[in-house]
């Protein structure tokens, strides 16, 4: 048996070892992708067209599809999610049955694996509603997936707004909706924006439910009823045929773009939270 001091040493060693493993792996993933990818990210790569045979390898079409997907999913989910959060914090009686039902359903939505959304989206939006493999079908599917994120984060932001603002607004005879619109929502705005950035990250990062609903066409979609391939789906397709050096380079460059996007979103969140913290002190 080890005595107490020896035990402590072993545990301390385990902690340092674990932390080092974590840090090493994280650095390794980032470094491997970025070091192999950055040199292949060029203006032509970003803005160029793509053909399967290999004479053109740009990702402009995937960028456009990703942007459509982000924009459309958020324009569906953000208003609904924010208004749900408003209902839960400002209107519903806390702890009432309806709140419990809504909470339970939102949590369930958050728990459903994304592949099940893909399954559902493909049957319901693509086939039953006849939208076909399209940006619209993909966005509708993803908007269900990000809805719980938006609701929960917005709710937290609204609950952080001091009661004294509400009291102050109502004491002036302002209507509820005016107080919400002019006082509560603006105060909660940093939190709401953070929730939207989080959901942008989710939309960019998803892949399985995307190709099952939006398809994989590598052309710039001309309308939301056309299919489009997002960046993540593109990376997946590229990794299935890694034969030539150019294909490897494309895969690394696409992965690099994805990491840079995530990095940018993270930075944006940090900037907003920092600025907000400064104002409130």
């Amino acid at each position: 048996m080890l005595n107490r001091t020896q035990q402590d040493k072993v545990l301390l060693g385990a902690i340092w070892a674990s932390a080092s493993i974590t840090i090493l792996f994280l650095l390794w993933v980032m470094w491997h992708i970025l070091s192999n990818g950055l040199s292949h990210v060029s203006w032509e790569f970003i803005t160029g067209a793509y053909t399967r045979i290999g004479e053109a390898s740009g990702i402009w079409a995937m960028i456009v599809s990703t942007v459509y997907m982000v924009g459309l999913s958020l324009s569906i989910a953000a208003p609904i999610g924010i208004m749900t959060a408003i209902y839960l914090t400002e209107y519903a009686k806390p702890g009432s049955k309806i709140v419990k039902v809504i909470r339970f359903c939102t949590e369930s939505l958050a728990g459903i694996p994304s592949i099940v959304y893909g399954l559902f989206g493909m049957t319901f939006f693509v086939t039953t509603l006849g939208l076909g493999f399209s940006i619209l079908a993909g966005s509708l599917t993803l908007s269900m997936l990000i809805l719980p994120v938006i609701i929960r984060t917005t709710e937290e932001a609204l609950m952080a707004v001091p009661i004294s603002y509400r009291e102050g607004g109502y004491a002036l005879g302002a209507t509820k909706i005016y107080t919400i619109w002019r006082l509560i929502l603006p105060s909660a705005m940093p939190g709401i924006i953070t929730s939207i950035i989080l959901s942008i990250g989710r939309v960019i990062g998803e892949s399985a439910p995307v190709f099952l609903t939006a398809g994989m066409v590598t052309q710039i979609p001309e309308s939301v009823l056309e299919s489009g391939r997002t960046l993540t789906v593109h990376l997946y397709k590229l990794t299935q045929e890694l034969f030539t050096q150019s294909e490897w380079d494309q895969a690394y460059a696409t992965a690099t773009i994805l990491i840079v996007l995530v990095l940018a979103l993270n930075l944006a969140t940090k900037i907003i939270t920092n600025r907000y913290n400064k104002v409130s002190h």
């Binding site: 001091p162 004294s164 603002y165 009291e167 102050g168 607004g169 004491a171 002036l172 005879g173 302002a174 209507t175 005016y178 107080t179 002019r182 006082l183 603006p186 105060s187 104002v279």
Partner: peptide, 27 residues
Amino acid sequence: KRVGMVFQKANPFPMSIFENVAFGLKA
């Protein structure tokens, strides 16, 4: 509107001085 209220802890709204006073009117 006819019975105004001032609270124990000053609760200005997170907006400009002008907008604070104008809030009720605009409402």
